[in-house]
Design a protein around this nucleic acid. Sequence first.
DNA 1: CGCGACGTTGATTTGCCTCAACGATTGTGG
DNA 2: CCACAATCGTTGAGGCAAATCAACGTCGCG
Lengths: 196, 196
Amino acid sequence: MQEFQFFVNYFKRYIDLTQEEEDYLCSLVKVVKVKKRQYIVQPDFVCKYRTYVVSGTFRAYLIGNEGQDHTIAFAIDDWWISDYNSYIFQQPATLFVESLEDGVIIQLDYNAEQLLKETNPKFEKFFRIITERSFAFLQKRMLSALSKTAEERYEEFVEKYPKVVQRVPQYALASYLGMSTEFLSKIRNKRISKKS
Amino acid sequence: MQEFQFFVNYFKRYIDLTQEEEDYLCSLVKVVKVKKRQYIVQPDFVCKYRTYVVSGTFRAYLIGNEGQDHTIAFAIDDWWISDYNSYIFQQPATLFVESLEDGVIIQLDYNAEQLLKETNPKFEKFFRIITERSFAFLQKRMLSALSKTAEERYEEFVEKYPKVVQRVPQYALASYLGMSTEFLSKIRNKRISKKS
DNA sequence: CGCGACGTTGATTTGCCTCAACGATTGTGG
DNA sequence: CCACAATCGTTGAGGCAAATCAACGTCGCG
């Protein structure tokens, strides 16, 4: 059960937990193995879990009217991922969340999360903090989308998340950055030849 | 002090408050009058307040490298606004938050907010909920930016926020929607002639 | 009244997309 | 273990949505 170590440590970055609290938390979640190309969230079904990635690579995306997909989030080891619009409001999902390689996740049930928050303010605090941080992150991304060119957005992403770049397919990254796969390919080539 | 009524009612949408808690909350905030073109947040200064808009119109924006401004948020009556990246982490701001007309706001000091959350889990819950909702909102906006054309984004905004459209200048709306003022002007004209 | 801020309109340009064809790599069944 | 298909990435030609540039109308305000 060493998967729980990573999971619990994530909580401990923002709140203190007693041994009992740790145990209680772990008793409420479940460890799940997922294979490549498996979906952990699908449109029209309510997203029941907030999921923590122990190992693996995931991608949340939407399929647009013309059939193109738009990636809203990635997650690798030690990140969280879900369709939050579906999870928070317990409404049918609009996103797919897909596994891009074999992995292990820990899933926290919606009702269990409510229970945690109601019975112990520490958890209320924890979720407040991680939501704040997600919000701040997304706001920065929104500003990038508004103010930068495709090439600048790519450079920024490579700088910030080199590990993610290596682990996700090119088309997924392109759709995250808001450009076509062809254009991303051209940007990468230009960069390679630029590098002395 | 009827400004406090709106303010307190906002909290009561998500949490219950006793009379004492209401009074305590109100004792920690201050009511401020602002004039048109006044800045309540400026780059390089740490954003000390989370601000609730009693009445007025506000806009949070960034100035890009080439001098164009990019609007990240609007706020009118009964909304909140701040540079959250600055407020949450208590780091120097990167945004301007500007008043677009005379108005009245209620400001909650960062330290007061921490105090509220530490002493009463209800407030922890309140800020968790409003942050979740902001996050969900921003995620939808991000998906719009990724998947829709300029015209579709405008249509969507008019539908969702007709009041905001009437109260903010055109250039601000254009920069919020990620297009030039000239292009927004052309879209509007097309719409007017389309309407039977 | 006159100036500056805001919005409009048309001409031109461009960043990025679409389409199409072609390598490279991976995975799968015989 | 190989053959073949499917998936993924590359490259070039052409096109379009939206930006930029420039000039002008209009309104509110000092």
